[in-house]
Design a protein around this nucleic acid. Structure first.
Length: 265
DNA sequence: ATGCCGTACCGTGTACGA
């Protein structure tokens, strides 16, 4: 089974690129983030035409997460238990479903904006709540195959940004964020792509500005974290960097994130 | 100091992103 995740930065703008890659890469399950649309606006038909079921959680033009699967899509949950709210609003940042026997969570971790911003405290609170809830899933069934996948908005080590000096004092690289990410790893969820994509200089995101992509100046902030029951089954991992490349003239821009995926035995 | 690009929204601008 091939399991992928991709921050698509608007599914309506990216639908042809997404379905094109699903076909070319022979993906079975794709978790998406930043769909940036409501349920009514989500383009479900192109997925159905390729044989994928799809579930989406989107409330407005911000955030939005989805899972497409051609190996089943059951027990869908919108948001995780204990997921914090921001300004009293429950944001569409998490959706879970069981696909081909794997419990998949598509996650869009809050950005944080700046370290003084209330969004930063929200980010840390959100990650702590996720750790607690995900930990309870493993306690209930230590051998369960669980995949926590998506845009984590954290570069876990200095090697995961193109120039650490550029990010000094910014979100994504602070010690509390790295500790929050590490706590989830310590709870039993391992980065299952990294062993197949060693650094340095290996990224999943490149800013649209300043020719960051051709200059290979990016960040590694998208991850597939697997429980022991999932990690034991990973036979391959990859970053589909080509999907970050511009299309032909007149075609829509790429997302600023590349998809990443693993193969499971 | 800068949102340089891209996407969304009742919008000719503002919010958001990392």
């Amino acid at each position: 089974m091939r399991l992928a995740t991709w921050n698509v930065n608007s599914i309506r703008s990216r639908i042809d690129r997404v379905t094109g890659w699903l076909e070319r890469a022979d993906v079975d399950v794709l978790a998406m983030q930043e769909t940036k649309c409501t349920e009514a606006q989500f383009p479900a038909m192109p997925f159905a035409a390729l044989g994928y079921e799809v579930v989406h959680y989107g409330t407005n033009q911000w955030n939005g997460v989805a899972i497409a699967s051609r190996v089943g899509l059951d027990d869908v949950q919108l948001g995780f238990d204990g997921q914090p709210v921001f300004n009293d609003v429950a944001e569409a940042r998490a959706i879970g479903a069981t696909c081909g026997g794997v419990r998949v969570w598509s996650l869009y971790v809050p950005n944080g904006r700046t370290i003084e911003d209330p969004h930063y405290a929200y980010k840390l609170e959100w990650l702590a709540a996720l750790r607690n809830t995900a930990s309870s899933w493993l306690s209930a069934d230590p051998s369960a195959p669980i995949a926590l996948v998506g845009d984590w908005n954290i570069a876990p080590t200095d090697e995961d940004v193109w120039d650490v000096e550029v990010f000094r004092g910014s979100t994504h690289v602070t010690e509390p964020e790295r500790a929050a990410f590490g706590a989830i790893v310590d709870a039993g969820f391992a980065d299952v792509v990294r062993p197949f994509t060693p650094g340095p200089g290996v990224y999943t995101y490149w800013d649209y500005t300043q020719l960051r992509f051709p200059k290979r100046q990016g960040m590694r902030i998208d991850f597939i974290l697997g429980s022991p029951g999932l990690a034991d089954r990973v036979t391959h991992g990859e970053i589909a960097r080509d999907e970050r490349k511009p299309g032909k003239k007149g075609t829509p821009a790429p997302s600023d994130h590349a998809p990443i995926f693993v193969d499971l035995s």
